[in-house]
Design a protein around this nucleic acid. Sequence first.
DNA 1: ATATGGCGTTTGCAGCGCAAACCCCGGCGT
DNA 2: ACGCCGGGGTTTGCGCTGCAAACGCCATAT
Lengths: 112, 112
Amino acid sequence: MADEQEREPSPFAALAAMDRLVHDPSRLAILTLLLGWTEVEFSYLLAATGLTKGNLSSHLAKLEAGGLVEVTKGHKGKTPWTRAKLTKEGRETVEGHWNDLDRLRREAAHWA
Amino acid sequence: MADEQEREPSPFAALAAMDRLVHDPSRLAILTLLLGWTEVEFSYLLAATGLTKGNLSSHLAKLEAGGLVEVTKGHKGKTPWTRAKLTKEGRETVEGHWNDLDRLRREAAHWA
DNA sequence: ATATGGCGTTTGCAGCGCAAACCCCGGCGT
DNA sequence: ACGCCGGGGTTTGCGCTGCAAACGCCATAT
């Protein structure tokens, strides 16, 4: 198999193909914040990211649909209380994404 | 001025606000490739990024409209010959973007 | 009663990125 | 002469997205 004419993809092709679900700025912010905690409240995410409630809500929904975060809704007393945490896959994906970015940047730099 | 109640933005807010013109994967690939050269041909970009002709064309148009890239169209013999290069602003912007990403990732990591 | 405000969800729309279709020119086969 | 492929790009069409604004719901205050 080593004699297969392997088309070595440039780092640029990999960069161009990054997963938008993760790479999108708002979501990358959410995901990166979540890396530092086991579980975070909606209102904390709200303040830390500067997103609006509406947009945070829909980004979380998308991340949940993609299997990267788990969202838990409950009540604290009578008021709603929503928390988010990374799934195992989510954590791996986000860490992987940052590492990929780092690596691609370095590879790109020494590309002839 | 030091007594101004400076609202210190979290790195996450800065991440969430990254400029999409630069951060978009395809364009980040194009821009990063351009960092390594003074001028690059359309067909080289095409091969290196794995984009289609159509999409490369429109991304370049957008980058040019944003003042990050200068596109020069001419002819080599009779066939069209298009080249792209970073503007001064473009170069600063792309380098800045990568540095920002690096920095934000680090700040995020030691965020309590 | 009726505001006000916390906590989120839903909706409406403009704009974007992607794939496919298209245009133009030069060579090649017949 | 005519069709056809292929290199070099541009334009078009459309589904999806992300943002802001509107909404829903339940407390507490007036």
